[in-house]
Nucleic acid binder design. Structure first.
Lengths: 351, 351
DNA sequence: TTGAAAGCGCTAACAT
DNA sequence: ATGTTAGCGCTTTCAA
């Protein structure tokens, strides 16, 4: 058993309250007593119990960031933004996975009031749970859906407009049979991107397919499988707008495997501009947005928690690379910038 | 104020212990009472206080993983290995950054007994702190240094042999003036890699430079700057063995900027086989090791904590790519595998 | 400036 | 099967 504050008090010959004050740098303790306490604490290897302190103070000074996949290519910049703002507020950050359903760490922490606020990205946490647990003492910011409720805030991106820009780009390059490579239809991001896709087709007087023929999860294998199926059905479009970059990369893999050229035969645009998108071949044309800002702003919102819901929408931007056949090749200078950005030289990452 | 177990007891008309038992699925509670309690809890939106439970039970069923850089390219596979084993033991995992010195979240969690065990990777946590806090009730596994002490275990890799293999490879390809691009000299990994480098030179009767001329931190910019300096001094070697891949990539960037060809003029080998190493151009020849295993084994060690120190050493393997001029080009099939591995299709990642 | 004591919300031993 | 109660280790009010 490790020493408690009581043991320290006994050894130092003072009351427990005195030890508490001394250890927390209260001004009302004399220098001499403080030294005495510190020496006793040192001698006993005293380590305060966070659980006891949290219980008493009814807060943990910790913010939780809950993600689907801790190691995923998408999140690292978001995490940095969050980390920086949390630290500058003198708080702790814990990152944990939402993987595992009801028994995931994320669910447990959310339910058990372990953290004083949460940033959630990942559909594994249900809307109803979020609305249930959000409160004045527990603000929540959600990054991947529009969820309205007291003490629930949103940071979103211009999904619809981004998708519109992506598809318009394809149309400008002369493509006319453009398929949407869809993520899960329940995903909020996905449906807005689908809306933007339809609007672009409509405004350019192109027929809107009455059903999406390609589905998948938001992962590389999802894009791969969907496109494999499409190839088997021999109904290839001349362009694909993928709901995210991972799927786009899977699509490229599937096309390559069948000897179909990208962009010559089929052009591809993705969404998100993840770190390897500039590096794959052909480098992926995509819709970029600032993930660092997203994390930083979300965290600000947690600290400035107000009851009334707040919705912040960040802009997106088309990044033209090779997968639509616009540029001829990857320049060395581009290449260096890309590698640097992945390894995030220096402090804050660029988008 | 949110409801406590007392409120639930009152509403349900039972004792607090009954509520506690009911909520924890004790068998000694009748079905009817249980239902009554559950209904009352629901009605009050009761959420148990983790802090109170942890205080009482004197454990949190949580393992902490402490890393230098949450978003870094190196860690994602380690995290997966840890995550999987932690979850399979029914525990929670929190990942947090060691960034910020004494006031970092990692330091606070380590000191305040928030977690029941820790896996540490990153020099920001001092040896003395680790030795101080490690105990039977708080085992620690360290991944990047050999640290001996009770309840402190190590998972390491064959750093020296890996470096030896890397440098021997360069020598076999006919290179003779081989520089070591060093990371921080205080880093344990770095010094072992330096040892392996020297042994390879010695065994092949090549002169060992009496000082390292290139230093840097373990980041891309460190490699870049060191090589820039070396170029300025006009003392170029015909090969560079970098202490890690990030530095190797920085070295390549610096060489490219000066029009020096890799591998024709200068061959490069790295260490770690991070996810973008196969993708940069030229694809990086490097020393690979299994990061997933590292995380998984480390976590096993936390759960099987025994007093006597345990040291596990994982093997490394040379992966030949383009940066030493061995292979002529990147094959399409390689390329697909690479992209898949970065996006980690499916569950467990390959090395 | 220091001490005594109440209690944060829960678990679990013990009593019924 | 359910109730009573004593703490877990700390902070903080109040008294001295």
């Amino acid at each position: 058993m490790s020493a408690t504050i009581k043991d320290v008090a006994k050894l130092a010959g003072v009351a427990v309250s005195t030890v508490s004050y001394a250890l927390n740098n209260s001004t009302k303790i004399s220098e001499e007593t403080k030294r005495k306490v510190l020496r006793a604490a040192e001698e006993l290897c005293f380590r305060p119990s966070g659980a006891a302190r949290n219980l008493k103070k009814r807060k943990s000074e910790t913010i939780g960031l809950f993600l689907n996949d801790l190691g995923g290519p998408f999140y690292s910049q978001v995490i940095e933004g969050v980390q920086e703002v949390v630290a500058s507020n003198g708080y702790n950050l814990i990152v944990c996975s939402t993987y595992g359903g009801e028994n995931s760490s994320a669910h447990r922490f959310l339910r058990e009031q372990f953290v004083d606020g949460a940033i959630i990205m990942g559909t594994a946490i249900s809307d109803s749970l979020i609305l249930q647990v959000a409160s004045e003492s527990f603000p929540i910011v959600v990054l991947d859906r529009a969820l309205r409720g007291d003490y629930v805030h949103n940071v979103l991106i211009t999904n619809e407009q981004g998708a519109y820009d992506a598809v318009s780009h394809l149309i400008k390059l002369g493509r006319s049979k453009i398929e949407f490579l869809s993520g899960p239809t329940v995903a909020f991001d996905n449906s807005l991107r689908f809306d933007g896709y339809k609007r672009a087709l409509m405004e350019h007087n192109l027929p809107i397919p009455n059903k999406i023929s390609m589905f998948g999860r938001f992962v590389e294998a999802g894009g791969y499988q969907a496109v494999k199926l499409m190839i088997a059905s021999k109904q290839l479009p001349d362009a694909i707008f993928a709901a995210n970059d991972e799927m786009a990369i899977g699509a490229i893999r599937a096309l390559h495997e069948s000897g179909i050229r990208v962009p010559e035969d089929v052009a591809i645009v993705g969404f998100d501009n993840i770190n390897i998108s500039p590096i794959i071949r052909p480098a992926l044309t995509t819709i970029s947005h600032s993930k660092y800002e997203m994390g930083a702003i979300a965290t600000q919102l947690v600290f400035n928690a107000r009851k009334h819901e707040n919705e912040i929408i960040l802009p997106t931007q088309l990044v033209v690379r090779q997968s639509c056949g616009y540029k001829d090749g990857l320049q060395e200078t581009d290449y260096d910038a890309i590698v640097a950005s992945i390894l995030h030289v220096g402090g804050r990452k660029q988008n």
